[in-house]
């Protein structure tokens, strides 16, 4: 008989088995160094790193962030140290922990993405996530993620080079997420993750100017959670590859909604800014929920609705 007091939290995506379905959303957790004093990173299913490019990127001017009702806007612009520093400094740090490593990859062009993918070929990482959905950079990013032909092309190019399973991270700033999900699948993606942030704008009326130097930014936080659940549901029901669900998850209950909508795993992002322990607490909370409801495993609730 199944022991429901100790439910099985493992989840498997593209032959990679995670100890629990909770990951960190790229860009909200660095490479984990800034959060390792708050909890043992081994409590996470995976750390998904901040996007890394082939060379260092300086990012956007400040202000880069502002608060909005139940959320925030950001326009960081993918500031990152480049793949060489990342491989020398961040990956050895993460390997100290018993958690999976998913490296988020960004670029301005197909060639730049592929340089990072090639550089990662001999690194012991578990998966890579290709960011084709950042709304805050002018080239690459969302420019690829809003055109299904481009999504399929870049996915196929990355798959031809990648040694590790590939997750394509999709943008919600599209008319029909199902089309984008199918394009990633057609290109050979091993999984998809969604949603990246929703493009927004805030105006500082006292100063009569944009709140962010970039004018627009990506909206995240609980304000976007119902949109994310809907899009994860639609995407999960239009492809046969696994989906990683994210967008406004603050509590275990939010994460469970995402799993029930069809996600095989979830990422916790902005919540870490409100509570540095959020991701670990959500992993514990999912276990407690499964036990309370008598489920034997996470897999029983994935796509249950």
């Amino acid at each position: 008989m199944m022991n429901t007091s100790n439910p099985d939290l493992t989840t498997t995506l593209a032959s990679v088995t995670f100890k629990n379905p909770v990951m960190t959303a790229s860009g909200t957790f660095g490479s984990g160094m800034e959060y390792c004093d708050f909890f043992d990173l081994s409590r996470l299913g995976a750390v998904v790193t901040k996007g890394v490019a082939d060379v260092p990127w300086p990012g956007n001017p400040t202000p880069r962030v502002c608060e909005t009702p139940s959320g925030m806007l950001n326009a960081i612009g993918l500031q990152n140290p480049g793949i060489d520093v990342f491989c020398e400094r961040d990956l050895p740090f993460l390997r100290q922990y018993d958690t999976k490593i998913i490296v988020n990859v960004c670029g301005h062009s197909e060639e730049e993405y592929l340089r990072v993918v090639d550089r990662l070929a001999d690194e012991a990482i578990d998966m890579m996530e290709i960011n084709i959905s950042c709304p805050n950079v002018k080239e690459g990013g969302i420019a690829f993620g809003t055109d299904p032909a481009a999504v399929e092309r870049i996915t196929r190019a990355v798959k031809a080079h990648a040694r590790q399973p590939v997750i394509m991270k999709l943008s919600p700033n599209v008319t029909d997420i199902k089309v984008m999900a199918r394009a990633a699948e057609a290109g050979g993606a091993d999984a998809i993750s969604l949603i990246n942030t929703l493009t927004g704008m805030k105006i500082d009326i006292e100063r009569a100017r944009f709140a962010l130097a970039n004018r627009t930014g990506g909206l995240s936080g609980p304000a976007i959670h119902p949109v994310a659940v809907r899009m994860v549901y639609e995407a999960a029901h239009s492809v046969s590859i696994p989906v990683i669900g994210m967008g406004g998850i603050v509590t275990a209950e939010d994460a469970i909604e995402m799993l029930m909508a069809g996600a095989s795993a979830v990422s916790v992002g902005t919540a870490s800014f409100h509570n540095p322990m959020a991701a670990a607490e959500i992993a514990d909370g999912i276990g407690a929920f499964l036990a309370r409801k008598g489920y034997g495993s996470v897999s029983e609730i994935i796509g249950i609705v």
Binding site: F29, E34, Y35, G59, R64, Q79, S272
Partner: peptide, 10 residues
């Protein structure tokens, strides 16, 4: 945003 050096906002 984060206050701890992770988000690169400030």
């Amino acid at each position: 945003a984060c206050g701890v050096g992770a988000c690169l906002g400030c």
